[in-house]
Simulated scan of single mutants.
Amino acid sequence: MTSQNDAPAHPRRGWADKRQAIIRGARTVFGRDGYAGIDAIATEAGVSTRTIYNHFQDKEQLFSCAIQESAVQVRDALVEQMSRHLDTVTDLEADLLALAHAWVASMAQFPDHFALVRLMTAEANRFPAEALDAWQELGPRAARAALAHHLGLLAGRGLLEIGDPDRAARHFHLLVFAEVTERSHHGAVPLDEAVITEIITAGVRTFLRGHIPPPGAGRQQ
C-alpha cells in the first residue's frame, strides 16, 4: 500500500510548469503588446485566465515576477561573461573589449527582457515603485556590483588604479554600454556592427586612460 508520503510529486511539478509558462507568456505579450490584458497572456501561455489568477494576484504582480525573473537571467549571463573574460587576464584591453561586446550581445540574446525594459522606461509611472526598484536591485545593480568586484580584483593585481570600484563600474557601463543602448533603444533598432565596435573601443580606451597605473607601478601576472 502506498502511503501519502510516497505519492509522486507530479502535481507540484505541474503547478511549477504552469507558473513558468505563464511568466514566459507574460514576457512575450508585455514585450510585444505593451501592458496588455490577462486574456492575451492566457492565450500565449496556453492556460485559462482562471489559472493565471490561481498563480498571481493581479496583472501587476505577474508583470513584477516576469521582469524580475528575466532580470536575474540576464544578470547571471553577464556575470558569467565577467568571469570568462576577467578572471584570467592576458591582454587587459582585449579582455575588456570582449566583455563589452558580450554585454551588448545580451540585448539580442534576451529580446523579451529588453522589450520589457523599453516598456518600463516609456511608462515608468504606470508601475509600482517597488517593482521598478526590485528589478533594478536584482538586475542592473547586481550586475554592476559584480563588475565592481572584478575591477577591484584587477586593481589588487596592479592592472588598474581604482579608488572606488563601484564608481569605476559605473564609468565603465556609461562609456561602453550606455550609448549603444540609447542609440539602439535597448535593442529595438539594430546598429551596424562597425558602429558598435567604434563605440565600445572608444569607451574601453577612455576607461583605461583613466585607470591604468602610472609607469613603474608594480603589476602582478
Rank of each mutant, 00 (worst) to 15 (best):
R84Q: 08
Q109G: 12
E80I: 11
V47A: 02
Q221N: 13
D87A: 12
D164V: 13
G203Y: 10
D95H: 02
G210R: 02
T197W: 08
P111A: 11
F56M: 08
V72L: 07
G216S: 01
R141Q: 15
A142H: 06
R75A: 09
F63T: 04
H186T: 12
T28Q: 15
R141F: 13
V189F: 10
H101I: 07
A7R: 11
A131C: 09
S106Q: 01
R50Y: 12
K18L: 05
T28I: 15
P140S: 02
I38Q: 04
I67M: 00
I52H: 07
K59Y: 03
I38F: 00
V89M: 12
G210I: 00
I22Y: 10
N54F: 06
G163D: 13
I200A: 09
D33P: 04
G25I: 03
S3V: 08
Y53E: 02
R12D: 13
L97S: 00
F63V: 05
L132E: 02
A40R: 07
T197D: 12
H211E: 08
Y35D: 07
D76K: 01
H186M: 15
L174Q: 09
R27H: 02
R141M: 11
P128F: 06
L86M: 00
R12V: 15
A217E: 07
D6F: 10
V180H: 09
P11F: 04
E198L: 07
V79A: 07
T90D: 14
D91R: 10
A26I: 00
H55E: 05
L78P: 03
C65T: 15
N5D: 13
G158T: 09
D17W: 14
G203E: 10
A194S: 13
F110H: 02
L174T: 13
T43A: 13
T28L: 12
P165R: 04
V180M: 00
D76Q: 07
V180T: 05
F207L: 08
S83G: 15
E198C: 10
L191K: 01
L191M: 00
R205P: 05
D192T: 09
T43N: 12
I196E: 09
D166W: 04
L159I: 03
L175F: 08
A148S: 09
A194Q: 05
M120Y: 01
G158K: 03
I23R: 06
A129D: 14
A105V: 10
F56Q: 02
M1H: 11
R12N: 13
G46W: 04
A145S: 11
A21F: 02
E69W: 10
W103S: 14
V117P: 04
A168P: 05
D76V: 12
Q109V: 14
I52V: 07
D76N: 07
R19C: 06
A169T: 00
G46C: 04
V47K: 07
T88W: 12
L132F: 00
R118Q: 09
D33W: 01
V47F: 01
E93I: 11
N125S: 15
R157P: 11
V47N: 06
G25K: 02
G31W: 03
H171D: 14
Y35W: 06
A134S: 07
A26P: 08
